[in-house]
Design a protein around this nucleic acid. Structure first.
Length: 581
RNA sequence: CGGGACGUGGCUCAGCCUGGUAGAGCGCUGCGUUCGGGACGCAGAGGUCGCUGGUUCGAAUCCAGUCGUCCCGACCA
């Protein structure tokens, strides 16, 4: 392919809307073009990258028995009402009407459609298990698209769905998709870290996210300095060690006047005590019901964990009005003496430990409040935000560190969320002729986000350094100078390499500096240079974009050298943190 | 949804404060020179100054509204 015939229009300057490296370089390299906030055209180069990623996805998913299908973006609202998601999802779901005023949605994911397919065709245990997937457009009305392709409103998603006879079968299948994901990211040149993810109602090890560590990531996850524990902060649990210097026998509870002392900071001054000696009681309104969360003062309530525990659709802080209608006073809340209000305790609230808590009347706090003596715990779970430096709960030795990451993919044991009777009610007949509920898993990867992530991981000041598995071309051939013999040799090499590699041949009438800068910006993994200087000695130059390594070889040695370099650039699929199958 | 910034040729920006009818660099077209890290000369094309309304003899410039884009936060099946 000749550069002069191809659609490449690099930009010298940084477009002002771009701040992250992937956004900057994909725009400057004319890989993508913005259409609206979070909506992009993929230009020929970007399109080629996306197609390569799609092919990697197809190869790996076909290899584990997946079958590709295509489902529509346009979905009747009825389908989404059956699963309740029509009501549960907020503004992120695009809702439209057709000419007859019937309600439709633009699918943001395809559980409803695929489950309906399963319901229609998977009647017998003999039909299971089965995995079907697609690579198709997803539409989401994101509140805030950002960072170019990292968070967009329309994108290609590879979404895969598996159907199983029971949880055991799903558990047995899960490692295959997990391992396929590891191979996919590695083949796309991405260093993915699988972490335990928030799995909502499923619990356990039902869900993993594959993260690329990056300062531009929107997610946070913890990793243990000692063991292999890695988890999203929405799920991660650290050890909650009891405060030090506690009396063996706590003194009796007593009220202390505390006018105008409301915040933990004020209280610490007033009582000359550390944060971990206080009980923090936070009032929430969960789907209209007042619920109190009680947690030790040095922790923060995680709204994600708390929402999941309550199985609530909507969780907000309780209004002062709601509190006072129940006879409670903001700033002076505590679990002591509260009746007929649901109270959830975080596991940091240890029994027998004296705390300072609100007095449940204005301007009064209580000292030496002890769980199991002065109040009683009915519901206790982990609802605390994990903290940097917390001791690892898994090994007890390491320290948890918090990192930012880009979510590359997500695997999820859905269970019966969509096949349940009150959802879409999908059953099959088992060997005994009995009705059994179908169990599902779902798995997703965003194609454009992978493209952007690859640039985030692989760039330098001069531009992209694309992994060979997804680069739009494997080789860029630069003919430097205007001498006819150089062009002649470059033409010859172009003809010779084209059957074996994807080559973009920079035949433009541009100065050497322009060509070399563009080659760097575009991030093609291997650059071959033909110039008069080299030609005099019968030589050509080969440079590896990523390492910067330059080799000058005889013209005749070029094919062998390229073969060697291309082999070296292939990602290694050994030694990944595979899950035993 | 809350906070902030910005909208002027394809790109990056100046001009706005202090109103008088639009400029630079890059890119683009043609001709010539140059050729290993964004060369140069000459000639040229290209702008409803986001949009609407107001003030004014006169608005890119002042005022109001509106739309759009980006950043931080909230949100994120």
């Amino acid at each position: 392919m000749r550069y002069s015939d191809y659609f490449i229009h690099t930009l010298y300057e940084v477009p002002k809307e771009a701040e992250t490296p992937s956004h900057i370089f994909l725009l400057r390299g004319s890989y993508i073009h913005p259409v609206a906030a979070g909506v992009y055209s993929l230009l020929p180069l970007g399109h080629r990258v996306a197609e390569k990623i799609k092919n990697v996805l197809r190869e790996e998913l076909n290899a584990i028995g997946g079958m590709e299908i295509t489902m529509p973006v346009l979905n009747p609202a009825e389908l989404w009402k059956k699963s309740r998601r029509y009501y549960d999802i907020g503004q992120e779901l695009f809702r439209i009407k057709d000419r007859k005023d019937r309600d439709f949605v633009l699918a943001m994911t395809h559980e409803e459609v695929v489950t309906e397919i399963g319901k229609q065709f998977l009647r017998s245990y003999r039909d299971l298990p089965v995995m079907i997937y697609q690579i198709q457009t997803k539409i989401r009305d994101e509140a805030r698209p950002r960072a170019g392709l990292l968070r967009v409103r329309e994108f290609f998603m590879n979404d895969a769905y598996s159907f199983h006879t029971d949880f055991e079968d799903l558990d047995a299948y899960y490692p295959r998709i997990f391992n396929a994901y590891l191979r996919i990211f590695t083949r796309c040149g991405l260093k993915s870290i699988p972490i335990e993810a928030d799995s909502g109602i499923m619990g356990g090890t039902g869900s993993h996210e594959f993260m690329l560590e990056s300062p531009y990531g929107e997610d946070r996850f913890v990793l243990c300095s000692h063991c292999d524990y890695r988890a999203n902060t929405e799920k991660a649990v650290g050890l909650k060690l009891p405060p030090e210097g506690l009396p063996n026998v706590p003194p009796p509870m007593r009220p202390v006047p505390t006018p105008n002392v409301k915040t933990i900071a004020d209280l610490m001054k007033r009582f000359d005590s550390g944060e971990d000696h206080f009980l923090k009681t936070v009032a929430y309104e969960a789907d209209g019901e007042l619920v109190l969360a009680v947690i030790r003062g040095d922790f923060t309530v995680s709204t994600t964990k708390f929402t999941n525990y309550l199985k609530a659709t909507k969780l907000e802080f309780a209004s002062e009005g709601l509190l006072s209608s129940k006879g409670l006073f903001p700033g002076f809340l505590s679990p002591v003496g509260v009746k007929d209000i649901r109270i959830v305790f975080d596991s940091s609230v240890g029994e027998g430990i004296p705390f300072i808590a609100g007095g449940n009347e204005p301007d009064v706090h209580l000292e030496h409040v002890v769980s199991g003596r002065d109040f009683f715990v009915k519901e206790m779970t982990d609802i605390a935000e994990v903290r940097e430096g917390d001791r690892c709960a898994k090994c007890g030795q390491g320290v948890l560190q918090i990192r930012r990451g880009i979510e590359l993919g997500h695997t999820f044991k859905l269970g019966t969320k969509y096949t349940a009777q009150d959802s879409m009610d999908v059953t099959y007949l088992d060997a005994n002729g009995g009705h059994q509920r179908v169990i599902m898993g779902c798995y997703g990867i965003g194609v454009e986000r992978l493209m952007a992530s690859a640039v985030e991981q692989w760039h330098d000041a001069g531009g992209m350094m694309l992994p060979i598995g997804i680069a739009p071309f494997e080789v860029i051939l630069c003919a430097l100078g205007n001498k006819p013999e150089v062009a002649q040799m470059a033409d010859e090499i172009h003809k010779e390499l084209t059957p074996r590699y994807e080559v973009i041949y920079d035949d433009r009438d541009e100065s050497p500096g322009v060509k070399l800068k563009d080659a760097d910006l575009l991030g093609i993994p291997i650059r071959v240079v033909v110039s008069q200087k080299l030609l005099k000695e019968g030589k050509v130059e080969v440079k590896v974009r990523r390492s910067g390594e330059v080799t000058i070889c005889l013209r005749a040695e070029l094919p062998a050298l390229l073969e060697k370099i291309v082999a070296e650039l292939q990602p290694c699929l050994d030694g990944l943190p595979y899950m035993p199958e």
